[in-house]
C-alpha cells in the first residue's frame, strides 16, 4: 500500500511526461542486468564512470544489443578506484557527462525489472542523476542476484552458517566462466548469467549444496 502511494507521488512529481513509460505495467518477460563502475563506494561523493546494461529475454542474454557507455564524472577519481576498474580520468575526459547519457539508458531499461549484484548500490548511484533530471527515482522492480543465490544456497541453513556472497564465490559455485571483473559490461553479463541459472534453479526447486569445499570430485569412472 505504501509503495502504491509512493508511486502515486512520484507520478505526480515526474517533471517530464515523455518518461511516463517508467510507470507502465510490466508487459514483457524481459529483465535488464545493470552494472556501474564508479569513482568510489559513497553515493554522496562518488560518481559513475561506466554503465553497462544487458537485456535478458526468456532464456537468452542479449549481449548483442547491450547498452555500454563511459561517462565523464564530475567527482575526482581517486587512485584507489582507478586501481580497481583501471579507467583513468584521461580515459573518460572526452566522454559526455552523465546527464547526457541518462535518457538513452532510461529508454533502454524502460520499465523492466533491474537485475544486478548488490543492485541497490547501482540504483542509488543512478538515482542521484535521475532525480536531478526527472525529480523522481527509478521505478523499476529490483532483483538482486545475491538474494537469489542466498535463497538457493543458505535458505535453509542452520543459524551461524558462514555466509559467502562474494561475486567471485557465486561465480565459482555456479561454475560460471570468470570474466575480467570490474568491467561494467563483464559484470553485467556475469550477473545476467547468475540470474538465468539461479532463477531456473528456483523454478525447478533445485538447491545448491553447502560446504562443497570438502566434497569429493565426482568419480570419473563410476
Amino acid at each position: 500500500m505504501r509503495n502504491f502511494f509512493l508511486r502515486q507521488f512520484d507520478w505526480v512529481a515526474l517533471n517530464d511526461r515523455s518518461y511516463a513509460f517508467m510507470f507502465e505495467k510490466l508487459g514483457t518477460e524481459e529483465v535488464v542486468s545493470v552494472d556501474c563502475e564508479t569513482t568510489g563506494l559513497n553515493p554522496h561523493k562518488d560518481d559513475i564512470v561506466t554503465i553497462a546494461a544487458v537485456k535478458i529475454r526468456g532464456n537468452k542474454i542479449l549481449t548483442r544489443e547491450a547498452f555500454r557507455v563511459s561517462v565523464n564524472p564530475e567527482a575526482v577519481m581517486p587512485a584507489t578506484s582507478i586501481k580497481v576498474h583501471q579507467i583513468r580520468k584521461s580515459d573518460v575526459a572526452a566522454e559526455r557527462p552523465i546527464r547526457k547519457v541518462l535518457p538513452a539508458l532510461l529508454r533502454f531499461i524502460g520499465n523492466r525489472p533491474l537485475v544486478g549484484y548488490y543492485i541497490d548500490f547501482d540504483v542509488r548511484m543512478l538515482n542521484k542523476d535521475v532525480f536531478n533530471m526527472l525529480n523522481i527515482g527509478l521505478q523499476n522492480p529490483l532483483i538482486d542476484v545475491c538474494d537469489l543465490y542466498y535463497s538457493r544456497k543458505y535458505g535453509t541453513a542452520p543459524p551461524g552458517t558462514q555466509l559467502d556472497l562474494k561475486f567471485s564465490s557465486i561465480q565459482r559455485d555456479l561454475e560460471l566462466p570468470v570474466l575480467q571483473a570490474h568491467d561494467a559490461f563483464n559484470d553485467a553479463v556475469s550477473a545476467a548469467q547468475m540470474y538465468v541459472v539461479l532463477s531456473d534453479m528456483a523454478r525447478r526447486g533445485i538447491r545448491l549444496k553447502r560446504s562443497r569445499d570438502w566434497s569429493q570430485p565426482s568419480m570419473p569412472l563410476g
Partner: peptide, 10 residues
C-alpha cells in the same frame, strides 16, 4: 564477438 548473445537451458 559483437554479434554474440548468450542462451541458457536447464
Amino acid at each position: 564477438r559483437s554479434q554474440l548473445d548468450i542462451g541458457y537451458w536447464p
